[in-house]
């Protein structure tokens, strides 16, 4: 049975008003026509390289963008548009954020107080202790300040803050950087547990391998947009991936040849026409750089490609087009992902 859709994002765009040279204003588009779904009891992982605007996605869903940002598109939470009153009611209660680093904790407040959000009721105290214990943190963590904890401990404290409520949706923003593999796997495991308890998890990460271990669905994020959203199991074989970039990611994994894709992602603000991936795509045709590429349904999943059947047929890694100038670009995909 299909699980209930909790969060549905469609056509989401976020841009910043920016002043360049004197008083010339320009709009910097960071996220463009992004779509994804999160179901109750499942983890949807948004996977993309660092610095490509993934954190903005989390902040955008929660309505926490800076004043100079503007957002358009549709965010549906349980079928209702997530704005205004509804957003204010669910933010921090039903929808919680697990932020990415220690800077999201008040440096001058004891950890316990922060996890409890200042509540001092017996129930809150007990719940807090329970959570810290559940994540293997010593009892005296409560009375410590953030600067006294290690990176791994901070991460677990941040997860605890999310579970102080009874969330329906957890948005985790890059929960693993700076952790060694064991610690990172353990953190990912915690999110799996949370999902298994019936909560939906939106996991924003740059680490495809780790995401594949726990996630139910993967949304491939590239240059501010999603290129393909599929079941995580589709990543077991290259042939089941529809978008050429997804296939490139597959081949870049160590166990599948460690093969980097030449070229770099366009930066936010770089203008392009047609397909954002076209400059690096081995199957690009003339039509790819002319028309806007829709995020459309192909064989039960969303793909942003007008000729996925080409990619599907080829499937062999050796066919990647490697133009000489592309070779010279030092920054490989693997390098950026790591």
């Amino acid at each position: 049975m299909e699980k209930q859709i909790l969060l549905q994002v469609e056509g989401l765009s976020i841009s910043f008003a920016q002043y360049t040279k004197g008083l010339r204003r320009r709009n910097l588009q960071v996220i463009r026509d992004l779509g994804l779904t999160v179901r109750s009891g499942e983890i949807t992982a948004v996977v993309g390289s660092s610095g490509s605007g993934k954190s903005l996605l989390a902040h955008g869903i929660l309505g926490l963008l800076p004043y100079n940002a503007s957002m358009s598109g549709e965010i549906l939470y349980k079928g209702q548009e997530l704005t205004g009153r509804l957003l204010e009611n669910v933010r921090g209660r039903e929808i919680v954020l697990v932020p990415q680093s220690v800077s999201y904790l008040d440096p001058l407040m004891k950890v316990g107080n922060q996890v409890r959000k200042g509540r001092k009721t017996a129930g809150a105290l007990e719940r807090c202790r329970e959570l810290l214990a559940r994540y293997g943190l010593p009892p005296d963590t409560e009375s410590r300040y953030p600067f006294e904890l290690s990176g791994g401990m901070i991460r677990r404290v941040l997860i605890s803050t999310a579970l102080m409520e009874e969330p329906e949706l957890v948005i985790a923003d890059e929960p693993t950087p700076g952790l060694d593999l064991t610690a990172a796997k353990r953190v990912m495991g915690h999110f799996r547990e949370i999902a298994d308890e019936g909560t939906g998890v939106l996991l924003i990460t740059h680490d495809l391998e780790l995401a594949l271990e726990v996630a139910d669905r993967i949304a491939v994020f590239y240059a501010g947009t999603t290129l393909e959203e599929m079941e995580a199991s589709a990543f077991q074989r290259e042939e089941t991936l529809l978008h050429p970039y997804s296939q490139a990611l597959y081949r870049a994994m160590p166990q599948h040849g460690f093969q980097p894709l030449a070229g770099t992602q366009p930066y936010a603000g770089d203008s392009y026409e047609g397909c954002v991936f076209a400059p690096r795509c081995p199957y690009r045709g003339e039509e790819c750089s002319i028309q806007e590429i829709p995020y459309r349904e192909v064989r039960g999943r969303k793909v942003r490609c007008i000729r996925p059947e080409l990619a599907e047929m080829s499937g062999s890694p050796g066919k990647m087009d490697r133009s000489p100038d592309a070779e010279n670009l030092a920054l490989t995909e693997r390098g950026r992902m790591a």
């Binding site: 902040h59 926490l64 933010r91 954020l97 932020p99 680093s101 800077s103 999201y104 904790l105 200042g118």
Partner: peptide, 19 residues
């Protein structure tokens, strides 16, 4: 960042200023 996080946790403006 920590005020952003406080906001994400549903704290109201005056609470954030105070806390």
């Amino acid at each position: 960042d920590y005020v952003l996080f406080a906001q994400a946790r549903g704290e109201k403006k005056w609470t954030m200023i105070r806390r």
